[in-house]
């Protein structure tokens, strides 16, 4: 077994520096790498380009890095639950590239899978396709979208083991598996680091080969963005 375990978040983030490009898993606040984000705030690295579907809220998720003005550019599909984000975007301090959600996922997956680019129908005929190569296949038009290149991918899983194998829970899975192995170094944080052999090989979502470093997060707030319930009756 090749051991991917690191002692703590500090060791997990060794090598991060200013002006790097990061991928960060999560949809809304669900499945975000909370511990890695908190450590990035502590490290104070800045000039970052962050590839993440969303940009957190003002006081949680990537919003914490925005508050400290550590992010130079966001590549996302949906933003705006975040006043500070809006302020920085409108003032021009923050560069924002909005891309279709499926394109975001597939540009991660392409990087993971060794494809330099993919053709997608999403965005053809819209401003998203401006300046990009387009091509017709079987009478339908497609846009060429390039694989992402990133220094680190920070992902969050439910369970993992020292071999780096990961299991996700519910919709907290989202972009996390697609980002594993899509950057030079993939850092996985898990709610529970289980003993080797505890995870059933049949049930593993991401094999450890895609993960370079794994650690158990100290604490998970797992904040709910839109608590929606129905009455018991």
């Amino acid at each position: 077994m090749i051991n991917k375990k690191v002692a703590n978040v500090q060791d997990a983030l060794k090598g991060v520096s200013n002006n790097m490009t990061f991928m960060l898993g999560g949809f809304g606040l669900s499945g975000i790498p909370e511990n890695s984000i908190a450590e990035l705030v502590k490290l104070g690295v800045n000039g970052l380009t962050c590839i993440s579907n969303n940009a957190g809220v003002d006081d949680f998720g990537l919003g914490l890095l925005l508050q400290e003005k550590q992010i130079k550019k966001m590549v996302s599909s949906y933003v705006g639950e975040n006043d500070e984000f809006e302020r920085q975007m409108l003032s021009g301090e923050l560069d924002v590239e909005l891309i279709p959600q499926g394109t975001l996922a597939e540009r991660c997956r392409a990087a993971q899978a060794g494809f330099p680019a993919i053709y997608t129908p999403a965005g053809f005929g819209t401003e998203v396709a401006e300046g990009k190569e387009t091509r017709e296949f079987d009478g339908k038009m497609y846009v060429l979208e390039h694989a992402f290149k990133a220094h680190f991918a920070f992902v969050k899983a439910w369970k993992g083991d020292e071999a780096g194998n990961l299991v996700f829970k519910g919709t907290a899975r989202n972009f996390n598996p697609n980002m594993c192995g899509a950057a030079k170094i993939t850092v996985a944080e898990v709610e529970e680091l289980v003993p080797l052999g505890d995870l059933d090989p049949n049930q593993i979502h991401i094999p450890g080969i895609f993960v370079q470093r794994i650690f158990q997060g100290e604490v998970y707030e797992k904040r709910i963005e839109q608590r929606t319930v129905r009455p018991k009756s």
Binding site: S76, S77, Y78, V79, G80, L98, I99, P100, Q101, G102, T103, T120, P121, A122, G123, F124, T126, V128
Partner: peptide, 12 residues
């Protein structure tokens, strides 16, 4: 601008 989310993939 909040973004297109999955709308462009869906309609395409």
């Amino acid at each position: 601008v909040k973004g297109m989310g999955g709308a462009m993939d869906l309609v395409a």
